[in-house]
């Protein structure tokens, strides 16, 4: 007998066949290789998208953050950017009266317009969900404000709300009511812009809410009615909780949009009277684009980014709590 022993399968250990990996080992290895291939393939597939995100989102955001640490005026190229670290933040937050006011104005605007839109939007959606005659036409008509460009809306409302000649004040005076200085009084300008924005975007909440209402199961309401729940209780304990996931998304979208409000403010009041309706976007625009003060303009943008992130985290947590 030779010195070489047989394997369990009857093959000699020194046989060329015995040096081949076992089928179990092959089975073990194959998924690894294929997993690696799949991983590379996956990376290759997402690479274009990642590149776009890097180029169009991440890089500009990082560039803005880095720029906010410099004093840099784009016009005066003879003067090189000067590193001031947090100097721009310190100046804008603690010495410059316009930034805190712009932050407050923006928060007021968001709170005002989104609250109005949600309350009015849900109410109108409830009404439209009653299946009354003309609901479809009314729903279609509701799309009008959303279909009009903000510049046109601003133009329309500057005529409607013209304090001397506008039809709104004319009607109010005909009813012996006082005619407010809609856009020319520091106390009225921002609330007026809130109203105009709410007029344009409430239909968005209506459409979203209507979709949510129509997807609610009738059986739940029937069961509640059998249990003796009245209309208020059905709204409070069934309609609203079922609508909540849809509303959270709608509120998130509207908040993001309201946060960057620029066009209506720029066109209706230019941020005035004084700076009473100046939002963060408009303030950043004035610094970065009108004055070409890239450093301080970037600082405002970075502050906006931080506030937006805070909003996003709040919404994320709110959504998670609901789940």
């Amino acid at each position: 007998m030779s010195s070489s022993s047989l394997t369990a399968s009857g093959i000699r250990e020194d046989s060329p066949i015995s040096s081949q990996p076992s089928s179990a080992a092959i089975l073990d290895r194959k998924p690894n290789a294929s997993r690696r291939n799949i991983a590379w393939f996956g990376w290759a597939l997402v690479l274009p998208a990642c590149s776009f995100v890097l180029a169009l989102n991440i890089f500009p955001a990082l560039f803005t953050i880095v720029t906010s640490f410099f004093r840099w005026n784009f016009v005066n190229k003879r003067i090189p950017p000067r590193f001031v670290f947090l100097g721009n933040y310190q100046e804008l937050l603690f010495s410059e009266p316009l930034l805190p006011q712009a932050v407050l104005n923006t928060l007021f605007f968001i709170l005002g317009t989104v609250s109005l839109q949600v309350v009015a939007g849900v109410a109108i959606a409830m009404l439209l969900n009653q299946g009354l005659r003309g609901t479809r036409v009314a729903t279609a008509l509701l799309l009008i404000p959303m279909a009009i460009a903000p510049a046109v809306i601003a133009w329309l409302f500057s005529i409607l709300l013209n304090e001397a000649l506008g039809p709104v004040n004319y009607a109010l005076q005909a009813l012996n009511l006082s005619a407010p200085p809609w856009l020319s009084d520091a106390r009225w300008a921002l609330p007026t812009i809130v109203l105009v924005d709410a007029w344009q975007w409430t239909p968005f909440i209506v459409i979203i809410s209507l979709a949510g209402l129509r997807s609610q199961p009738p059986s739940v309401f029937e069961a509640a009615m059998l249990d003796g729940a009245n209309a208020r209780q059905r709204f409070r304990y069934i309609t609203l909780p079922l609508l909540r996931p849809v509303l959270i998304i709608a509120i998130l979208l509207r908040t993001v949009d309201a946060f960057k409000m620029f066009d209506l403010v720029y066109l209706l009041t230019g941020g005035g009277p004084g700076t009473s309706s100046q939002t963060l976007s408009l303030y950043g625009y004035r610094l970065g684009v009108v004055q070409f003060d890239v450093g301080r303009g970037s600082t405002v943008s970075t502050i906006m980014l931080m506030i937006a992130m805070a909003f996003a985290i709040l919404f994320y947590r709110a959504a998670r709590v609901r789940q």
């Binding site: 279609a140 209507l210 849809v246």
Partner: peptide, 17 residues
């Protein structure tokens, strides 16, 4: 219901003709 809602398109939900 939440899942169903997410699957449906806005137009479907509104039932827009």
């Amino acid at each position: 219901w939440q899942g169903r809602t997410q699957e449906m398109s806005i137009v479907q939900r509104v039932g827009a003709p």
